[in-house]
Amino acid sequence: MADAKQANLSGAYYGPPIPPQNTYRSVGRSSGCNPCACLFCTLFKLIFSIVVILGIIVLVVWLVIRPYGLKAHAESAALTQFALSSSNTLDFNLTVDIAVRNRNKRIGIYYDYIESQAFYDGDRFGFELLPPFYQGHKTTSDIKPVFQGTQLMLGNSVSTTYNTEKGKGFYNVDVKVYTKLRLKIWIFKIHHVNPTIKCTLSLPVPSNTSSTSTVTLGTDCDVDY
């Protein structure tokens, strides 16, 4: 009897099939991506795409507009008085005509602020504010500062430079024009570009105190942004 039971226990099982054991996954571990890492990756891709698109737009606009910088040259100057006293006081009367060219086909320029200064031997002796104006596409405008008055010169070498240049027949004067510009592109106005125009002039010494020494220059001026 015991042998029969042992045979039944060690024999094959012929009953109904046993269902497989179910396996469960934790809901929080269903994805291999950390939520913070996924969010950062998505934001990075979005920002990168925006930067690329903006870069393409800027490149296309630049290729269409093709912006050019200003060109300037001093056309003429009239020096009526330029006399330095023994006390380093300079009496002066100088007019300069500077032509400024807007070379752009699609960009207009608003000259909102124009400040002109005149220098001799590194010392400023003249100052004038000029009225604002608008410059259209592919046009040339004249800036005509007039420097007149008396100024005490503080440089140690002004007297030596003045006497040397007077003997040579020419005074070397620097004229600078400080500007604040707005660019008009179609209907858009861009704030603010601040170029400085610098012209180095070689002016003939007037023959006497009552005469005006007028000279046609055609001197190119530097434009620094």
Rank of each mutant, 00 (worst) to 15 (best):
A2Y: 13
Q6H: 10
L9Q: 10
S10L: 11
S10H: 07
G11K: 09
G15C: 01
P16A: 13
Q21V: 15
Q21A: 12
N22T: 12
Y24C: 04
S26R: 14
S26Q: 10
V27D: 07
G28V: 03
R29M: 13
S30Y: 06
C33E: 11
C33G: 03
N34V: 09
C36A: 09
A37L: 07
A37S: 08
C38K: 14
L39D: 01
F40Q: 08
C41S: 14
T42R: 09
F44M: 10
I47M: 05
F48H: 08
S49M: 13
S49K: 12
S49C: 13
V52D: 00
L54T: 10
G55L: 06
I56N: 01
V58C: 09
L59F: 07
L59R: 07
W62Q: 12
L63F: 02
L63A: 07
L63G: 07
L63S: 07
V64Q: 06
I65T: 11
R66C: 04
P67N: 04
L70K: 10
K71I: 11
H73G: 05
A74P: 09
A78D: 01
A83I: 15
L84E: 04
L84S: 02
S87A: 11
S87V: 13
N88L: 01
N88F: 02
T89Y: 05
T89M: 08
L90E: 06
D91L: 09
F92I: 08
N93H: 14
V96A: 00
D97E: 05
A99W: 07
R101H: 13
N104V: 06
K105S: 14
I109P: 06
Y110P: 05
Y110T: 14
Y111L: 08
D112L: 08
Q117S: 01
A118L: 03
Y120F: 06
D121W: 08
G122E: 05
R124G: 03
R124I: 03
E128A: 10
L129I: 07
L130I: 00
P131H: 00
P132T: 00
F133C: 00
Q135Y: 01
D142C: 08
I143H: 04
P145W: 04
P145R: 03
P145T: 01
F147A: 00
T150F: 07
T150S: 14
Q151Y: 01
L152A: 14
L154K: 15
N156W: 10
T160F: 07
T161V: 14
Y162K: 09
Y162H: 07
T164R: 15
T164D: 07
Y171G: 02
N172W: 14
D174F: 02
D174G: 02
K176Y: 03
T179F: 02
K180A: 11
K180I: 14
K184D: 02
I185Y: 00
I185N: 01
W186I: 15
I187G: 04
K189D: 07
I190K: 06
H191Y: 12
H192G: 10
P195R: 06
T196R: 15
T196S: 14
I197M: 06
T200I: 11
L201H: 02
L201D: 00
S202F: 12
S202L: 13
L203F: 11
P204F: 03
V205L: 02
P206W: 10
N208Y: 09
N208P: 08
T212L: 09
S213D: 06
S213P: 03
S213M: 04
V215K: 15
V215I: 15
T216A: 12
L217R: 02
D220F: 11
C221L: 04
D222T: 13
D224W: 13
Y225W: 11
